[in-house]
Design a binder for these strands. Structure first.
Lengths: 206, 206
DNA sequence: CCCACTTACGTATCGCGTAATCATG
DNA sequence: CATGATTACGCGATACGTAAGTGGG
């Protein structure tokens, strides 16, 4: 294994703070140390991560990909630590629940009240997700539990799901939109010919 | 980040070879080095990974969990390296395809022949999966492509899917089985009262 | 009493800091 | 010339090897 999590943390910090120098400051390291780590990482992987022409170093496409994969690895590493301590302690000290924004959150309030009434040991942490978010949260280990995950459940080992109801959606376009005159029922391929915008929670990509 | 991939590799080797000593031999390390690494890992994580009472050290439940999560991380790390080099080179040198065993493989043979006829650069690597395997393979990054993934697709960013057909299944029990006399249609909860055995490809767990 | 793990200790490597150098805008 | 990255070099922590110690079956 020629890859270290520390190097990936450095890479992450560089991207987040915009420069080697700023990353060094954030990590309480001197610039040369950052330069050294990245140089070693590039050597180990046998690829070029930064384009050094210019005042600030800029990520290459390869660097971008390594950064993204690396962040996933780092999240997994943090998750491992968390689970290890959890098992050692023998109980869940917190339960992380991913909720699809399609569900009005107030629906959950009475259940939350009941839960805390019966169990004050475990803290509930809610995250709000859209689209594939709930499943992604489960699979990434960011959540222990999901409510309102749309689509059928992938039959993955370690997960189970059940239906809690149906959601009605209305497909709407402006009167002037070409689809307003299209023959119904609308096929997915027909809709796909026009621009679609998906609202995503951007908190995870800053 | 108090966690190193090297330590996880050591842990993996110990489990695979059965002892600290054997793992050391496999990694070309002396036993004390192995002992040191594990001790440091336990200290870093703040947990106990091995039960030292007895001749050979035995994994604790926590150790077992760290091992499993760690193997996932290691696979991710290898995956990162692979993708980095791939992007650097600028092309896919191989395409890894996960195929559900429910599909007779010979169905794919003509397509494979056609593919190689048009493209001799890219090598096809097939893995055979069952149940949730194809999706797991995609999500773990072990496969670039899946054929015959059952269940509806989780709506995950970065993946898309389409239906290629339907599979008919017949639910069958022995004449003497209690379910043979149950009133139909059988509900999932009724079936769940009896023992079920799922055939899994065990190659990944040795 | 053998085998497996641990501990003690010396050593070499590696990561980091200091400081000087280079490059860019 | 100011800002940011690299290089040279020395120091110290850390991982590993040698060898002795501990303990279970």
């Amino acid at each position: 294994m020629k890859l270290s999590l520390e190097a990936l943390e450095v890479l992450d910090a560089i991207d987040r703070h915009g420069s080697f120098a700023a990353a060094g400051e954030a990590l309480f390291k001197v610039p040369s140390s950052i330069s050294y780590m990245i140089g070693k990482l590039e050597e180990d992987l046998g690829v070029t991560l930064f384009d050094r022409t210019g005042l600030k170093a800029k990520l290459t496409p390869t660097g971008q990909a390594v950064l993204e994969d690396g962040r996933r690895l780092l999240r997994g590493a943090i998750e491992l630590e968390r689970r290890a301590k959890k098992i050692e302690a023998g109980w869940e000290s917190e339960l992380r629940i991913a909720v699809d924004v399609i569900l009005p959150f107030r629906i959950l309030l009475p259940y939350i009240t009941t839960f805390y009434g019966e169990n004050s040991q475990t803290r509930l942490l809610f995250s709000h997700e859209v689209s594939g978010g709930p499943w992604e949260a489960l699979l990434d280990g960011r959540a222990d539990f999901a409510i309102g995950a749309l689509d059928h459940a992938p039959n993955l080992p370690g997960f189970s799901s059940c239906s809690i109801g149906q959601v009605q959606s209305a497909f709407a376009v402006a009167p002037g939109h070409p689809l307003a005159d299209a023959v119904e029922p609308l096929d997915r391929s027909v809709i796909g010919q026009y621009r679609q915008v998906e609202i995503q929670d951007t908190s995870r990509q800053r």
